[in-house]
Amino acid sequence: MTELYTSEDERKAAPAKKEQKREFIPRHKGSSLSSLLVLPRKNIHFETQEPEEEILLILRKHWLTNIPWFLLGLTLFFAPLVLTFFPLLDSFPPRFQFIFVVFWYLVLLMFVYEQFLSWFFNLSIITDERIIDVDFINLTSKKISDAELDKIQDVTFTNNGVFGTIFNYGDVIVQTAAEMPEFVFEAVPQPASVANILQRLRTEEKIEALEGRIR
């Protein structure tokens, strides 16, 4: 009969999960602003992380996906210079002209900051136990989905488009038997490597289950 409850004594008696050295995961790579962070520092945590759970990869969209809003922000930054050639605000007193320009830059800075936050915090995390997808949909909504590695059924990756091929980024699609049937890691760097790591982790998890070393 399957045990539905494990007492604390039984958990303590079970062999602890050893810290594994995984040959298929490269050494620590990437910084805080990277799109691919491998074996990040131990002080990096996420909200639902278990005490012994180790973060292996943190994935964001490739930095190239930020180019459109960056260029838009840059263009809008220089937009007030148009006023020197087209005196659109000359009918307003100088103090109003000043405030309009200040307000323009305030709004622009907030737009740029929001775009950066959206890129920075919409990420996917791969740990030694599960995959987690963190989505901040807008200012007030967040969606966090996770699935255990042994629930992964299929991993597919794509490299679409000219830039995706040249800069080696694409989508990694993970089919799972969890509540969330599909995870899509959009425009992540080195999708082939990420897919390979997920497949190896899934295999490792199945071997651990067979050996009875489940935490």
């Binding site: 805080s32 990096i44 909200e47 936050l117 920075f120």
Partner: peptide, 18 residues
């Protein structure tokens, strides 16, 4: 101010990075 709260929420979800 909403952005201040949003950043606090985001850094609680994933902490330790900037």
């Amino acid at each position: 101010f909403v952005v201040v709260r949003q950043v606090k929420l985001m850094t609680q979800v994933v902490s330790g990075i900037l």
